[in-house]
Design a protein around this nucleic acid. Structure first.
Lengths: 219, 219
DNA sequence: TGTTGTGAAGGCGTTCACAGCC
DNA sequence: GGCTGTGAACGCCTTCACAACA
């Protein structure tokens, strides 16, 4: 199996989502073309992405919806759960806890840490906010596997280091700063500042209005 | 000027951030090498990115920190403000309003819409939640330029269509769904579901622990 | 005829390497 | 000597196009 690119993984998420919708509609089979058009990409891309992991389709017929859904679920590791600690119980941390999307994706938040003495000991959802000073030991004790960083940028790298020391295997970073971690620790970042600035750039550069729709798969 | 890639824009955000830090430290000049190492990329990449927009450096000396900061700020359009409407006053919408990062990036939230009759008329931050049914007319009246979609996935495309009809020039989408908009409307998406699944994939695939650090710029 | 799976071609972004300037 | 700006080389991802199969 070749190295899988980040964009392929992101598209697998899309396919999975489409397959869930299509399964709910009761459809049994789907072609790469239909799978592609809902996401604005080409059918060849879909087939290429899937081919990295196996031959899931049948020529002339397409892909079995329930079968492909199960295969992609397994590839993405959605068939298992992870023990998560959220670090930072401020705006972003609290929103993430209230959000609830974690559980649906297999991530169980079992601990919340904060630095602020006034916040420690308080409730955050169903959990008690713990002292960030004891992150490394506590996280190890609690067998935390994934850390979510929702602290200010300036403390993000230190928190990441503590999480790594505590033995986490993955980190999801919401602080607007590039983090360095050992390469056996999975790292994903959601940088809202960057999205805002990217939108600002696009708005600023925008010229020559055309009012044409994004092209879809025509193959 | 060639077409600017999304990754170049994202790096410009990084450079801007580093320049703010370095300016705070009082440094006057910075080399592409130093600018690069804080972000884990190569110095050649920095110079190439900047060269798309002009020649901001001086051979043998590097870049003037305040000057480059101003140039990149202008490129990213951070020197102007945008009138924003947030659509969806649930978990994500409320978190975004409380977050406060908007204002810092030049985005002023001047309206909030929701579909839920119980939510309409209530306060969300300093604003009154308006009826989403009147989105198109109200947004046009209020000269909304940017829409933030924080609704469930199923209504996201309809909201996007309404925002476009109301004349917005940009959309920031937090709903986990691919949106189609005319190509003179700027669109950026933050898809947390996808980040979770991407992390899940990386965790699942992880093999052969090596405990080696991410390589930095060695040029 | 319809659709997959895939080698080959193409396009785009990154890295190299060096001329040019301080 | 130090550092930028950039054409050329490289490598990766996407798209093409078609053989294989239902």
């Amino acid at each position: 199996m070749p190295r899988i690119s980040e964009s392929t993984v992101r598209r697998l998420s899309h396919y999975y989502r489409v397959l869930e919708e299509v399964a709910a509609e009761g459809k049994r089979m789907i072609s790469s073309r239909r799978l592609a058009e809902r996401e604005g990409i080409t059918s060849a891309q879909v087939r290429k992405d899937l081919s990295y992991f196996g031959s899931f389709g049948r020529r002339g017929l397409g892909y079995s919806v329930p079968h492909l859904r199960e295969e992609i679920g397994a590839i993405l590791g959605l068939d298992r759960r992870w023990r998560v600690a959220v670090v930072g119980a401020g705006n972003i941390g609290s929103a993430l806890l209230a959000y609830g999307g974690f559980a649906r994706q297999g991530f169980d938040v079992v601990a919340v840490f904060d630095q602020d003495a006034r916040r420690i000991g308080q409730r955050a959802g169903e959990l008690e906010v713990l002292d960030i000073g004891r992150l490394a030991e506590t996280a190890a004790e609690m067998s935390i596997e994934v850390g979510v960083i929702a602290t200010p940028a300036r403390s993000a790298q230190a928190v990441a280091d503590a999480l790594v020391a505590a033995g986490v295997r993955g980190i999801l970073n919401f602080a607007p700063r590039k983090l360095f971690v050992p390469d056996d620790v999975a790292l994903r970042s959601v940088d809202m500042t960057m999205e805002f600035e990217s939108l600002s750039f696009a708005l600023t550069q925008a010229r020559a209005p055309r009012r044409r729709r994004t092209p879809r798969d025509t193959a």
